[in-house]
Amino acid sequence: MIAPALSDALGAWLAGQRALAGAAENTLKAYQTDVLGFLAFMTQHNGGSQGLAPIARITIRDMRAWMAHERGRGVGARSLARSLSAVKSFYRWLAEREGFEPTAVLSTRTPKFQRKLPRPLEIGSASDMIETVELQSNDPWIAARDAAVVTLLYGCGLRISEALGLTGRDVPLPDVLRIIGKGNKERIVPVIAPARDAVDAYLRLCPYPVADDAPIFRATRGGVLSPRAIQKVMEKARLQLGLPATATPHAMRHSFATHLLAAGGDLRTIQELLGHASLSTTQAYTAVDAAHLMSVYEKAHPKA
Rank of each mutant, 00 (worst) to 15 (best):
M42E: 05
I179A: 00
K182F: 03
N138G: 15
L243E: 05
D146W: 08
T281S: 15
P118I: 00
G99S: 03
A163V: 04
A65K: 11
R221N: 09
T110W: 01
A144E: 13
G48Q: 10
T281E: 14
F100W: 11
A277W: 12
I192H: 14
A65C: 09
A77M: 00
L158I: 04
G72R: 13
E25H: 14
R238M: 06
L273Y: 07
D197I: 12
A15F: 08
E70M: 01
G275Q: 07
A263L: 06
A56G: 10
D139R: 15
L279P: 11
A53Y: 06
A15N: 15
A263Q: 13
H301C: 04
D197C: 09
R169K: 13
G124N: 13
A291T: 15
E298L: 03
L173I: 00
I2E: 13
S83G: 07
R187T: 01
C206L: 02
L274Q: 04
S161E: 12
I58V: 03
K29V: 14
Q114K: 11
A247C: 01
S125K: 13
A56S: 13
Y154E: 10
A21G: 09
V189S: 06
L121M: 05
R82G: 01
E122P: 07
A263I: 09
V189F: 01
P244D: 09
R204Q: 14
S137A: 09
A95Y: 04
A77V: 00
I160Q: 01
M234I: 00
A193G: 12
K236T: 07
R238S: 08
C206A: 02
D197R: 14
T269G: 03
L166C: 06
